[in-house]
Amino acid sequence: MDEYFIRTEHLCCNYRDENGREAPALIDINLKIKKGEYIAVIGRNGSGKSTLAKLLNMILLPASGKIYIDGKDMTSGNLSDDEILDIRRRVGMVFQNPDNQIVATIVEEDIAFGPENLGIPTPEIRRRVDYALETVGMRGYEKHEPHRLSGGQKQRIAIAGVLAMQPECIILDEATAMLDPRGRAEVINTIELLNRERKITVIMITHHMNEAVRADRVIVLSDGRLLRDYPPRQLFSEPDFLRRQGLGVPQSVELIDELRRQGIALEGEPVTPEECAGAIMKYLKQKKAHDG
């Protein structure tokens, strides 16, 4: 057994531009993701984030390099269709637009769609649908029509549909981009719960730096290359690098950075608003004790 659930070696992928020429979308990506990790992927539009996601669940095939899922070489070229489908089951995806990924007119039928296609017996499907709805906090919506739900609810239904396939990893491709603050919080809380309590590996592609700070590790892509693979604390202590990449930092980190530039020696590597407030208060108290 591989220590890593996902591992890539010298992974390259090309796309065809408008003039029919091949251009690199990803260049020499070496990535190791353990089971149960929570990974954020950030980068500008066109940096290769979505390409990476599509390679990991075999919607796209690489030009060269290796992808191992749970130790198995996905790029050997002699995988059967069943093996490919099995990977898509184990590595589920949730996309940006909630309206583009719902297939049925009743919530429970939508969630049952995946397992039904696998030929799973009805009682087991029922059990899975109930479990999935329970997990995303949507029990009671079984008979509802998906198109009447809010954006956050639709995305949670999409996550439930992935959960019913009993995945080991969920990839979210800007899944909160179209949601209001409440919908975003619903989705983030659901994902964090799945990661923490069900040990599901999460790969979260996002433009929101305040979502990235919550991950175990943040991967930065730029023009198809992997530039950083750091814990958030380490990454966000380099605000200049992130700004050069056109990525910016959360407002709390920006504030801490500016205060330090003006000579305030704050301790630690705070990244969340709570931690940043804590660091400022600590400094304030020490100053008062010193002055007082």
Partner: peptide, 13 residues
């Protein structure tokens, strides 16, 4: 309506 949705931070700026 949501003029910056889905853009990266530099695009948003």
């Amino acid at each position: 309506d949501e003029p910056a949705a889905g853009l990266d931070p530099a695009g948003r700026e």
